[in-house]
Design a binder for these strands. Structure first.
Lengths: 118, 118
DNA sequence: ACTAGATACCTAGTAATGAAAGGTATATGA
DNA sequence: TCATATACCTTTCATTACTAGGTATCTAGT
């Protein structure tokens, strides 16, 4: 196989595998405490080592709010751009519970299906 | 929120979250031993409880073979339709290792980010 | 005063995948 | 004869992450 082809496949696969996962990650973090958007980008990168484009994150936040799973309040600082703080609604907490259960099923299936000797 | 909306969201989210995951699951199973397509559908359902449409599975197998990660041999039985047995190529084993590493990072991030009290 | 960079928000277009709904063919049992 | 199970495959659609843009405020350096 061509040398770059492996890397290209993995990059694309990773991008696909992150679908859904990123939403769960954001809800998980908002379940701990409120965050503003830019803060989430930094926190995800620094604490999880997961890179996320800010454009991707804001799209996720917009979707979650449209679903009624998160809500926001503006905080206008004396210095610097205003911040939009998000936290979970009761519907969001319910959705998070169900999403975690689905995720656990998937993680369990990967564990069970994985051979040790490949 | 409308009663059916929660369920509709979860179904869609699950569908998105399975992207990538299903390919990893298939490679994991083929890493243990060879399987034919129809067998994979049953095995995934029976041992993991994960439902997978056979059309989805055959598309995955076609992609993985196009990438050079799996190969097949035909088995013509005396009775019933012929079976197409798949197993991993060396490239497939390498890809599987890398995909598992990415998956572990994601699973770890979910664990670390998850609050216990939501 | 000007520039670069960091902070903080947002949008439009593209590519890739799972799901649904179809199709083909062989064998079995009512 | 008809339904069901086995076993393969294709086409179309909806959704989401990524890329590459954009706006605006503040700070630091020249």
């Amino acid at each position: 196989m061509k040398p770059g082809k492996q890397a290209a496949f993995l990059a694309n696969w990773t991008s696909q595998a992150r679908k859904g996962f990123l939403e769960l990650l954001v809800l998980n973090l908002l379940g701990r405490r409120e965050h503003y958007g830019y803060e989430l980008v930094e926190r995800i990168r620094d604490s999880s080592g997961i890179e996320i484009n800010d454009g991707t994150l804001y799209a996720i936040l917009a979707r979650l709010q449209k679903e009624g799973f998160i809500q926001h309040r503006w905080e206008h600082l004396e210095k610097g751009p205003a911040r939009k703080y998000y936290d979970l609604t009761p519907d969001g907490k319910n959705a998070l519970k169900e999403m975690r259960a689905v995720w656990e099923d998937m993680a369990g299936a990967v564990r069970k299906s994985g051979a040790r000797n490949v």
